[in-house]
Design a protein around this nucleic acid. Structure first.
Lengths: 245, 245
DNA sequence: GGCAGATCGTGATGCTGCATAACGAACACG
DNA sequence: CGTGTTCGTTATGCAGCATCACGATCTGCC
């Protein structure tokens, strides 16, 4: 336990440069509205030359991998933070907050959202065990936490669709065994559908397919969407007098 | 009204080449699991050289534009064909068939699906009036047809969420005035949510985020999803004894 | 303080793909 | 059987990815 800094001056400088590269890449993505970013452009924007970037990232895929990994964390943290700002007993409010965070993050970082939850990138090969599914797991865990909390509080009603196939129950047992005791297969199914609903709206809006709707109408539609998802899955329905998203 | 062929031999050959270029591009996209396709690869796969392709498409964007336009048509036709195979009076069946076609098309052509309804392509500039929103319009029109048919048959129940904001009603009046007489704003809102639900599941599955579910579980989840959407929007719920999608 | 080693950034280089231009081959038509 | 168009090729310029060798800078240790 020394008082010496955990990282040397050089390491800090290096981390700062890595961070600057990533943020510059994201800025360029935002400006050009694409996930296709060039080392040359990043370097030029930073006042450097392209080969210098190879000191920090092995190749373009490594940079993308890092951005995707950051995306996982950023999205997960945004969800956790939004839900954490609401009291544990207000499960409906937590759901609305998390859903709103999901939407807002996708709107503010559509390219990173596309990297993480959109179509897998071109030559991108999963580093270990497929991070593509990891994003799914991450989002699912946040949702699962909501449902588990609701179940423990006794405020988790039955889902609108009460039948669930044995195949779904089997997958729940295999991949989310920790929740099998508290969450019925039909509710697990409804949880997946809740995610799909949220994701569907978010994708449509983030990629401009709802631009023909006025912003106010989109907000209203989203709020209604969040309430519908709660209604369908047995979650407490968020209060309608508080703005969502 | 002559009996002469509408197209000369040369024109037919040209159209065939154009079609071959597009299908080769799609094949390469499928094989490489990306929307990023190179003229060089297309030409090589066709036993030609890259510059020859410029006789048929001004540049890479023009090819993408054509593929996107084809995507609109293909998706729209797939939906119309699937729905058309079901009797007009079975609105629930038509909805299930159309939803299944949406899903299957996205699964069989994930790259084209990404082009049409995913994130807008990099340097791609909308040729006229933004075809991005045109895809939305197209999909919406198919859905709107279902709801209008249900309304005319008197089998369209109330949506689960009966409140709709004035902003949504205004957008309905502005962009879909033809249906304002038969479709209440709350149902219009539910229609959008139905689309978002369908789109969300489709995106998650097409991009591999549901791969951890067994195929049988995914099928069951989708069937349940389609029934839930019908339930939420007031459409007749599809029969559960007929496989969906 | 000064030196050895590691780190960092640059210019030079090779490869590939996009796009254009100029040339030659094949075809339709009178 | 010529003539003009269409088509496909080779040749060229340009930009980005990736690597290498070199010089500059910084770190840490004696």
């Amino acid at each position: 336990m020394s008082v010496a800094p955990l990282l040397s001056r050089r390491d800090r400088s290096r981390l700062a440069t890595v961070a600057e590269i990533k943020s510059t890449a994201l800025t360029l993505m935002r400006e050009n509205a694409t996930t296709d970013v060039t080392f040359t452009d990043i370097a030029r924007a930073m006042g450097m030359t392209a080969p210098a970037l190879y000191r920090y990232f092995d190749d373009r895929d490594a940079l993308l991998t890092a951005l995707i990994a950051d995306g996982y964390s950023a999205l997960g943290e945004a969800l956790a933070e939004a839900a954490g700002a609401i009291g544990d007993d207000d499960v409906g409010g937590r759901w609305a907050a998390a859903a709103g965070a999901y939407r807002q993050w996708a709107r503010s970082e559509p390219q990173q959202f596309a990297l993480v939850l959109g179509m897998p990138v071109a030559g991108y090969t999963a580093p270990e065990e497929g991070p593509t599914t990891e994003a799914a797991k991450n989002a699912m865990d946040q949702l699962a936490g909501l449902f588990l909390g609701a179940a423990r509080l006794g405020v988790l009603g039955p889902p609108l669709i009460t039948e669930a196939s044995a195949a779904i129950a089997a997958c729940q047992a295999e991949h989310h065994s920790e929740m099998s005791a508290l969450i019925a297969p039909a509710t697990f199914q409804a949880m997946l559908q809740t995610w799909a609903m949220l994701h569907g709206f978010t994708c449509l809006e983030a990629y401009g397919h709802l631009d023909w709707l006025e912003p106010a109408a989109r907000d209203a539609l989203f709020a209604s969407h969040v309430r519908l998802a709660a209604l369908a899955s047995g979650l407490p329905v968020p209060r309608s007098d508080r703005p969502i998203g």
